[in-house]
């Protein structure tokens, strides 16, 4: 993947967001009146973001328009991304499931999915780890930290 193209997209988003911060008065509500006002610093930072983003974006546009060859720094390696999506998807499902099925049910499944994703095939130790760790964490959090992790609520 060409990082210069990503740079242009990223800096465009930052510039648009910064322009919104600079021009929209509804982003701050309420509060007392001070010499600086609530939006002084956000707008100052937004201005800096516009300048810096423009520097990065324009450089990338110039490089692309000149047809410069991709250097190793400009190339984003996308190898292994399928695993990343699976991991993130698993994490989202885990987050979604915990309030309903509880920490003790959802965690072993999530742990096993990650272990399998990482190439684990030693079933007995993986299953033992996936069962013991959540129980240990649940107990330690409840007894020592007074943190009550979600339980089954269906």
């Amino acid at each position: 993947m060409d990082r210069r193209k990503i740079d242009i997209a990223m800096t465009s988003i930052f510039v648009i967001a910064s322009v919104i911060i600079l021009t929209n008065d509804n982003l701050s509500q309420g509060g007392v009146q001070t010499d600086l006002g609530s939006m002084f610093l956000p707008r100052l930072v937004a201005l800096c973001i516009i300048v810096i983003s423009a520097t990065i974006g324009i450089q990338s546009i110039l490089q692309l328009s000149r047809g410069e060859a991709l250097t190793s720094e400009d190339r984003i390696n996308t190898e292994g991304f399928d695993g990343v999506w699976i991991y993130v998807g698993n994490f989202v499902l885990y987050w979604f499931a915990v309030p309903y099925v509880g920490f003790l049910v959802a965690t072993p499944i999530a742990m096993m999915v990650i272990a399998i994703l990482l190439g684990g095939r030693n079933w007995v130790p993986i299953i033992s780890m996936s069962l013991i760790t959540p129980f240990a964490v649940f107990y330690l959090c409840r007894e020592f930290l007074r943190v009550f992790l979600p339980t089954w609520s269906l």
Binding site: F91, Y94, W95, T107, A110, M111, M112, I114, A115, I116, L118, G119, G120, N122, P125, I126, M129, S130, T133, P134, V137, C141, V147, L149
Partner: peptide, 16 residues
């Protein structure tokens, strides 16, 4: 320790 033992635990610790 193999990474398939470590990173599932890291994920759970991060969650907690």
């Amino acid at each position: 320790l193999k990474r398939y033992f470590i990173f599932p635990c890291v994920t759970v610790f991060a969650f907690v």
